[in-house]
């Protein structure tokens, strides 16, 4: 029966898309905050933003790694 596979596709889509979007949005938000003109912004904001972008990239690469048969065999 293919219903299970359909559910799998839905789940995988949801998880991966949400992961990527949340991480990237956080990155965008933190960069924006870091760019604000104000004296009381902590110094770790910008590195944290970049960390978010990096994590997002890693998530994408991990997804590709799971899919490409060359690696999973």
């Amino acid at each position: 029966m293919k219903w299970l596979e359909l559910v799998q596709v839905a789940g995988a889509t949801l998880v991966s898309a949400v992961t990527v979007v949340v991480l990237y949005s956080l990155g965008v938000r933190l960069t924006a905050t870091a760019g604000d003109v104000s004296e009381r912004k902590p110094a770790w904001l910008r590195p944290l933003a970049y960390a978010c972008f990096a994590l997002c990239g890693l998530a994408v690469l991990f997804g590709l790694y799971l899919i490409i048969p060359y690696f999973s065999k």
Binding site: A17, V18, S25, R29, A32, T33
Partner: peptide
């Protein structure tokens, strides 16, 4: 079956993701 469900799944996920993206970046 995939023809019917795939656009619905993608649309629902896109809807959710758009909401999330805007919520997370609204300042």
């Amino acid at each position: 079956l995939p023809a019917i469900f795939a656009p619905i799944i993608a649309g629902a996920v896109a809807y959710l993701c758009t909401k999330l993206a805007y919520a997370l970046t609204s300042r």
